[in-house]
Each structure stands twice: as C-alpha cells, then as structure tokens.
C-alpha cells in the first residue's frame, strides 16, 4: 500500500469501518511511514477530543412539554372519519420536503411490487450486493485476479467455485474487463467480474440460483448505487455501479445478449 491509498482509507481505519485485509495492509504501511503515522495520531486525537469536548445540546423542558401537547393536538386533528358535519380544513402547510419520503416510498413500491410476493428477501440481497460492491471499492480489494483477458479470468474461478462462470471482455463496447474476485453474497460464494466504465467500476456478481425459473431484469437503487438483477439458466446476475443509469442498463443488455 502506498501513501495515497493509505490516506484514502485512514479515516475508515480510525472509524473501524475497514475490513480485516484493509486493516492489516494499512497497519503495515503506517508502521513504517512517518507521515501517515502522524496523520493517524492526529485523527485519533481529534476523535478523542471531539467525543469528550463537543457540546451535547439538550432539549429544554419547555420544548418537551410543547411536543407532547403538539402530538395530542395532531392526533385529534388526524383525518379519522368521525361524525363531524364537515371535515375541518387541516391547518398544515405541506412542504415539498415533507412529501419527499412519501414519493421515495412510492417510487420504491412501483419498482419492487412485481417481486414483493414471490421474493420477500429481494431487498436484503440487494443490500448485500451493494455492500459487497462498496466493500470492493473501500478496501481497495477490487480484484483477486487482475486481467483484461477473459481466458485468464475464467479459469481462475474454476478451482474456487463449484460452478462455471462465463467471462467476456467488452472493451470494444466501452466496458473493459479489469479482472475477477471471489466474493460472498449472503454467505454464498459468488463470482465478481469487474469492469470499468470511464472512472466508474461495475461489479457483476454471478452465483447459482436455487430454482429453475428465469427472472426478468429488475432495477433497484440503493444508497446512490444502481443495481440490476436477473436470473437466467439457473444463475443469478447482479450488476452494481454508481455509473449513470443509462450506461449501466447498456452494460446489462450487453451481458444478456450474449447469454
């Protein structure tokens, strides 16, 4: 690990957000780099001092009393069909921001509805896949085998997985293969094929499906990342990236066209 990598990860290290491999590599670097070691000490001092010294503001007793009153008033005001002659106009000033969570929830619902019934665990898989994607960027552990040659990457997986993964380079289409990595999605070993699109990384996760049915392409957004999933020939595919949606969609079409 060099200094610029160390600087990128040192906050995550101090915050205990780095995986074991990252921790080991970083500690190794810091132990013989005076500059990064000063940086680490500075961060830890700031952290200790912040936790001890930042003012923790407490709500006044008056505020708490007002909140309780406001809640009772709001509850009475709620639009329950009681037998009042006409519904009193609700005295609330709706603001855009108030509607945002609703809109987000509605949008999610629209995307998720077709899958909600057959696959209730879909969202947790999405979280796991996105977490694996983030981890690969965070810990600078993008590839176990770095090669743009599909004939190098494919055989590399053969000793490690009990299924075969097809690997193809799409450099000509603008999505060069960078390599492959063994990853885990919800305790299942998965092949992660790594591609680049300009400055962005695309992780394509592949692992076997338990049921025979194919699933159409689904899109999910998680924490600023887009994820596309589908199932073909008893294999699950998840493509995750922070690249813009149209480009990720194009990538998905490339992968699917070849199958």
């Amino acid at each position: 690990m060099n200094c610029s990598e160390a600087k990128r990860l040192i906050d995550a290290y101090v915050d205990n957000e780095l995986d074991v491999r990252g921790v080991l590599e970083l500690e190794e670097h810091v132990s013989h780099c005076p500059g990064c070691s000063v940086e680490e000490r500075g961060l830890r001092e700031l952290q200790t001092s912040s936790r001890a010294n930042l003012i923790r503001y407490a709500p006044s007793p008056g505020l708490e009393a007002r909140l309780h009153a406001a809640l009772r008033a709001e509850a009475k005001d709620a639009p329950i069909p009681i037998k009042t002659a006409e519904p009193a106009p609700r005295r609330r000033a709706w603001k855009w921001a108030a509607l945002a969570p609703l809109a987000a929830a509605a949008a999610l619902l629209i995307v998720a509805v077709p899958r909600l019934l057959p696959a209730p665990s879909e969202t947790s898989v999405a979280d796991a896949v996105v977490a694996a994607h983030v981890r690969s960027l965070l810990a600078n552990h993008l590839t176990d085998v770095a090669s743009s040659d599909q004939h190098t990457v494919k055989p590399w997986f053969q000793g490690k997985l009990d299924y075969s993964v097809s690997v193809k380079d799409w450099a000509a289409e603008g999505y060069p293969l960078v390599g492959g990595r063994l990853d885990y999605v919800e305790d299942t070993p998965a092949a992660a094929l790594v591609y680049r699109r300009a400055q962005h990384v695309v992780n394509l996760f592949v692992w076997p499906s338990k049921n025979a049915a194919d699933e159409p392409v689904q899109r999910l957004a998680r924490r600023g990342y887009s994820a596309y999933s589908w199932t073909t020939d008893r294999m699950h595919y998840w493509a995750v990236s922070d690249v813009n949606d149209a480009e990720l969609q194009k990538f998905v079409e490339l992968v699917r066209r070849r199958e």
Partner: peptide, 13 residues
C-alpha cells in the same frame, strides 16, 4: 432548533 424539532416531531408522527 426548537422550531424545527417541533415540526420534525409532528411530521414524524
């Protein structure tokens, strides 16, 4: 902070 908190609590409710 108190104004925003009151609005936030009602909104959360």
């Amino acid at each position: 902070a108190e104004d925003v908190m009151q609005e936030a609590i009602v909104r959360a409710f």
